[in-house]
């Protein structure tokens, strides 16, 4: 069972970094056992089929495809967790396909792998090489709903979602523009 959970207590950042390998040059994600953990310990994601390094790479890849600097990694992790729980854990062939695709991405990135590339533009250059692959298309296409259809994400973009239960916007700002 793959879970995304809030990391409320436990290891200090220093202990965690000591006990586990930083997943990338930017050290936003940390690998601990079978989990990918945010470096600020805000959340963790436990994987059951994919290698945790693979999941960390998928999460970084998701951010590089749709980079929103005001959106925490957690939302990208939620968007990608199905590659472990719904695909790799249920279908060995899919697991192999994902692992092979990420290994390919790492190989193209050079010695430090994809996560070893510190600048987004360098990672984008690698993604451009695989843009036409089924794997890339699957990941990008999946993110359109996997990322942007998370209701908890909407407020970060100022989108208020469902409005019928609040009586619509007739008294809540449909015509409140003041700067024109």
């Amino acid at each position: 069972m793959t879970t995304v959970y809030e990391q409320r207590t436990g290891l200090t950042r220093r202990e965690m970094l000591k006990r586990s390998g930083a997943a990338g040059a930017t050290a936003m994600l940390v690998i601990s056992g079978s989990a990918v953990i945010a470096a600020n310990r805000a959340w963790g994601l436990e994987v059951t089929a994919l290698k945790p390094e693979t999941m960390a790479t998928l999460i970084q890849m998701a951010r590089d495809i749709y980079p929103h600097d005001h959106v925490p990694d957690k939302f990208y992790a939620i968007a990608m967790k199905g590659y472990d729980s719904e695909m790799a854990a249920k279908d060995a062939a899919k697991k192999d396909m994902i692992e092979a695709a990420i290994a390919d991405l790492d190989a193209r990135a050079g010695a430090g792998g994809y996560l070893g590339l510190g600048w987004e533009e360098d990672r984008i250059a690698v993604l451009k090489q695989i843009e036409g692959t089924d794997f890339f298309k699957m990941v990008r296409g999946g993110l359109v709903t996997g990322l942007y259809n998370q209701k908890e994400l909407w407020p970060l973009f100022g989108y208020e979602g469902e409005s019928f239960s609040k009586g619509g916007y007739i008294d809540r700002g449909f015509n409140d523009i003041e700067w024109l």
Partner: peptide
Amino acid sequence: SACQQTGF
């Protein structure tokens, strides 16, 4: 009813 400017 009249439109309530719900947006959907």
